[in-house]
Amino acid sequence: MSIDATLSKPITLDTPVQRGETKITEIQVRKPNAGELRGVQLVPLMNMDVTALQTVLPRVTVPPLLAPEVQRMDAADLVQLGTEVVAFLLPKAARPAESPTE
């Protein structure tokens, strides 16, 4: 079985996202393409700026999170997802050896 290098490992949320009757407990992050980064400055995104993450995460999460869900997200979960986004932006040579996005 091959690992999809464009998807992170599933991330278990500390605080599930409630969407109607459904609780989302696990999220994956897709590798963003240039179009999904439109309107976002990369340096703030690399610094895990909350506003930049709130813009990008709805575009690159599986299942797709809605903007209001990202805004209400537990801070620890936002950091987990943001870490995955940043890892995808690093060149392969700069990624940690055990990066989940390798």
Rank of each mutant, 00 (worst) to 15 (best):
S2E: 08
I3H: 13
D4C: 10
D4P: 10
D4H: 10
D4Y: 09
A5K: 14
A5V: 13
T6L: 07
L7P: 09
L7M: 15
L7A: 11
L7R: 15
S8R: 05
K9N: 15
I11G: 12
T12L: 13
L13P: 06
D14P: 01
D14F: 12
T15C: 10
T15M: 09
T15K: 09
T15Q: 12
V17H: 01
V17C: 00
Q18C: 00
Q18T: 01
Q18I: 02
R19Y: 02
G20F: 04
G20D: 04
G20K: 01
E21F: 09
E21Q: 13
T22V: 13
K23A: 14
I24L: 02
E26V: 09
E26N: 10
I27M: 03
Q28L: 11
V29F: 09
K31A: 15
P32R: 11
P32C: 11
P32A: 06
N33A: 10
G35S: 14
E36I: 08
E36G: 07
E36M: 14
E36D: 07
L37F: 15
R38P: 01
R38T: 14
G39F: 09
G39Y: 08
V40F: 12
V40Q: 10
Q41A: 15
L42S: 06
V43N: 08
P44I: 05
P44Q: 03
L45D: 02
M46C: 02
M46K: 00
M46W: 01
N47H: 03
N47E: 08
N47F: 09
D49G: 07
D49L: 02
T51R: 14
T51S: 13
A52R: 00
L53P: 03
Q54I: 00
T55Y: 00
T55K: 11
V56R: 00
L57Q: 00
L57K: 00
L57P: 00
L57H: 04
P58K: 03
P58G: 06
R59G: 04
V60I: 13
T61Q: 02
V62P: 09
P63S: 07
L65P: 06
L66F: 04
L66K: 05
P68V: 05
P68R: 04
P68Q: 02
E69S: 05
E69G: 04
V70E: 03
Q71S: 14
Q71W: 00
D74W: 12
A76T: 14
A76V: 11
A76H: 11
A76Y: 06
D77M: 08
V79R: 13
Q80Y: 11
G82K: 08
G82T: 04
E84H: 08
E84Y: 06
V85I: 11
A87K: 13
A87G: 11
F88C: 09
F88S: 07
L90S: 07
L90I: 08
L90D: 03
P91E: 10
P91F: 05
P91T: 04
A93Y: 03
A94D: 10
R95S: 02
A97Q: 12
A97W: 08
E98M: 13
E98A: 15
E98Y: 15
S99V: 06
S99D: 09
S99E: 06
